[in-house]
Simulated scan of single mutants.
Amino acid sequence: MTSFVFVTGNANKLKEVKAILAAGDGSIQVTSKAVDVPEVQGTTQEVAIAKVKAAAEELGTACVTEDTALCFEALGGLPGPYIKDFLAKLGHEGLNTLLEGFPSTKATALCTFAYSSGPGSEPILFEGRTEGNIVPAKGPGHFGWDPIFAPIEGEGLTYAEMDGVAKNKISHRYRALEKLRIYLSEKAEKQTESKWKGLMG
């Protein structure tokens, strides 16, 4: 059994992570804790590494942080990791307005899970991407920018219009978390093998 603390105060993110992990073999257990970590400026990768290092020092245990970016092709990758602030200031309609006059509405949803096995350890990053387009808001508006992102694989639906099971099969969060799940499962298997070898002499 492998476990880690998912550093988040976002109930929706925690719900999705638990649902995705539950679809696996059940060998990974996750608890959550909200930790006030510094918001550094930089690339998605730099932000992720800084956050998980700070969280591991604060908690003193294995932990995972998550960073989500929404990268507009027309804006050279912006808002990127600053999408939360852009959304808070502009709303769904304002984010659409940013693309007025540009020939492309293409966007990439990017999720980065950063894993630390504990204080002082070097973080490992797991990224997932889903390609789509920015569209006028459709569907429930309770989960961030989901109403304005229509994944190419979503058959014309936005994330917000999709049910949880369908979204979790193609989402950027699922793709990143699946890489993390495989890593942790393989790590647990190696630890078990090493333990048995030690017992067998």
Rank of each mutant, 00 (worst) to 15 (best):
M1N: 13
T2D: 11
F6R: 02
F6V: 02
V7W: 06
T8F: 03
G9V: 05
N10C: 01
N12C: 07
N12F: 10
N12R: 12
K13P: 07
V17A: 15
A19H: 09
I20H: 00
A22S: 13
A22W: 04
S27Q: 14
I28P: 03
Q29A: 15
V30M: 03
V30G: 05
T31S: 15
A34P: 01
V35H: 05
V35W: 02
D36R: 04
V37G: 02
V37T: 14
V40N: 01
Q41A: 13
G42P: 04
T43A: 05
Q45S: 09
E46R: 01
I49E: 14
A50P: 06
K51Y: 03
A54Q: 03
E57V: 03
T61A: 15
C63Q: 11
C63L: 08
T65Y: 09
D67L: 12
A69M: 07
L70N: 01
A74Q: 11
L78T: 08
P79M: 13
G80N: 10
L87W: 12
A88I: 06
A88V: 07
A88L: 14
K89S: 11
K89A: 14
L90K: 08
G91S: 12
H92S: 05
E93C: 02
N96L: 08
N96H: 09
L98E: 10
L98A: 07
G101T: 09
G101D: 08
F102L: 09
F102H: 12
P103Q: 05
S104A: 10
S104D: 08
S104Y: 04
T105S: 12
T108E: 13
A109N: 11
T112E: 13
F113K: 03
Y115F: 15
Y115H: 06
S117A: 12
S117D: 13
E122V: 14
E122L: 12
P123E: 09
L125N: 04
L125K: 10
F126Y: 13
F126V: 07
F126L: 09
F126R: 10
G128W: 08
G128C: 08
T130A: 15
G132N: 10
G132R: 06
K138S: 15
G139A: 13
G141M: 08
H142C: 07
F143A: 08
G144E: 11
G144I: 04
W145I: 05
P147L: 03
P147D: 12
P147Q: 06
A150Q: 14
P151G: 08
I152D: 15
E155L: 09
G156Q: 10
L157N: 11
A160S: 04
E161I: 04
M162I: 00
D163Q: 05
D163S: 02
V165C: 01
V165T: 15
A166D: 05
K167F: 00
K169L: 08
I170F: 04
S171I: 06
S171W: 00
A176P: 00
L177S: 00
L177M: 03
L177W: 00
L180C: 03
L180E: 02
R181K: 13
I182N: 10
L184P: 00
S185V: 08
K187W: 11
K187D: 13
A188V: 07
E189I: 00
K190G: 01
Q191K: 10
T192Y: 11
E193G: 02
E193H: 05
S194E: 14
S194K: 12
S194D: 14
K195G: 01
G198W: 01
G198A: 06
L199D: 06
L199A: 02
M200W: 12
G201V: 00
